[in-house]
């Protein structure tokens, strides 16, 4: 059991923190699920934090000069290095406190990146920072493609999805590879806390973000972030689709505390993935065969997760 969790009772819907680390006036698309995920995570972590942002949608939409949407200290350096910059911030704060140059008061250092920044170009920096044991939270906001540059595939794009660089065609059904399992990579670093979350389950998300901040050492949070623009769905569907992703086991919610897997929302009677896929333009081209293959993969991945959690279906 993690000591820092002992006094944390969890948020309740009636008593959510009012402070908003992110202000309105940000330029995310209408109905953006990614900025919602970010807002909720930051709400849980609170104002006593420093945020390091990777290049990507969330950086662009919150920081068009001279406007910042950040109410907490924030720095953006580049695309692939949020974890490395956060390492520097965290290590500097520690030493400055030790040397009495700044007040001795814990500050949560939070690095955020999209799936591209995390699973692809920034994976090395993230691995380094986790391995070195910096006391920070890394949040991957997974909208399953490079949205900021116009919806190109990433290694986190799901099988079958259409992006501008995994287009369906006579010889292609869209993304031909399986989604990279970054939470598992984080777990392999033996860090104390890894979790997946979804804005549809906002209390679960906020509790996990808070736990990630509370735990000493690196914490990795992988948050499902729907993107109406890149996924081609209605602007009002962020929550509905996020819920479906969980109910179909496409995006299971779990925690890995000191290496132990806990499934937070066990879905015993999952809905068919087709229900999830049909809501989104990025899957519209799929044939029944590919949909069946996706169903098979989802079932297989969920079985693996059950085994890891020591549970049966």
């Amino acid at each position: 059991m993690i000591k820092e969790f002992e006094n944390f009772k969890g948020f309740s819907a009636k008593k959510l923190p009012l402070a908003e680390p992110i202000a309105s006036g940000h330029r995310a698309c209408q109905g953006c699920g990614e900025v919602l995920a970010l807002r909720l995570a930051m709400k849980a972590i609170g104002m006593n934090s420093i945020v390091v942002s990777a290049t990507g949608c969330m950086e662009i939409i919150t920081s068009t000069f001279p406007h910042t949407a950040w109410n907490v200290p924030w720095i953006h350096v580049a695309f692939e290095n949020a974890a490395a910059v956060a390492s520097g911030v965290e290590a500097a704060l520690k030493v400055l406190m030790r040397k009495g140059k700044i007040p001795q008061k814990h500050i949560d250092v939070v690095a955020i990146g999209g799936d591209g920044a995390t699973a692809d170009i920034g994976l090395q920096a993230l691995s380094g920072a986790m391995e070195r044991g910096h006391d920070f939270v890394y949040i991957c906001l997974d909208n399953e493609a490079y949205m900021n540059t116009g919806v190109q595939r990433s290694s986190s794009t799901p099988y079958g999805a259409m992006t501008t660089t995994s287009p369906p065609g006579k010889k292609s059904f869209g993304q031909a590879t399986k989604k990279k399992n970054v939470p598992a990579i984080a777990v392999a670093h033996n860090i104390p806390y890894v979790a997946t979350a979804s804005p549809a389950y906002f209390l679960d998300l906020m509790n996990k973000a808070k736990k990630a901040a509370l735990v000493k050492g690196p914490a990795y949070l992988h948050i499902y972030s729907s993107c109406p623009t890149g996924w081609r769905h209605g602007g009002d569907l962020a929550i509905e689709i996020s819920k479906l992703a969980v109910e179909t086991n496409v995006f299971p919610l779990y925690e890995v505390i000191e290496g132990n897997y806990i499934i937070n929302r066990k879905i015993t009677k999952p809905k068919p993935v087709a229900e999830y896929l049909k809501k989104q333009g990025r899957f519209r081209h799929l044939t029944d065969d590919i949909i069946a293959e996706i169903q098979r993969q989802v079932d297989e991945e969920y079985d693996k997760l059950l085994k890891l959690a020591g549970e049966t279906a």
């Binding site: 420093i50 390091v52 720095i75 350096v77 580049a78 692939e80 290095n81 490395a84 910059v85 956060a86 390492s87 520097g88 911030v89 965290e90 290590a91 500097a92 704060l93 400055l96 140059k101 700044i102 090395q124 920096a125 691995s127 380094g128 920072a129 391995e131 070195r132």
Partner: peptide, 20 residues
């Protein structure tokens, strides 16, 4: 900070210097 690359070395330095 024994970083895992020079890219991260300079990134880490930027974070550190920005923290004062």
């Amino acid at each position: 900070v024994p970083v895992e690359s020079e890219h991260s070395a300079m990134s880490c330095c930027i974070g550190s210097s920005a923290a004062g």
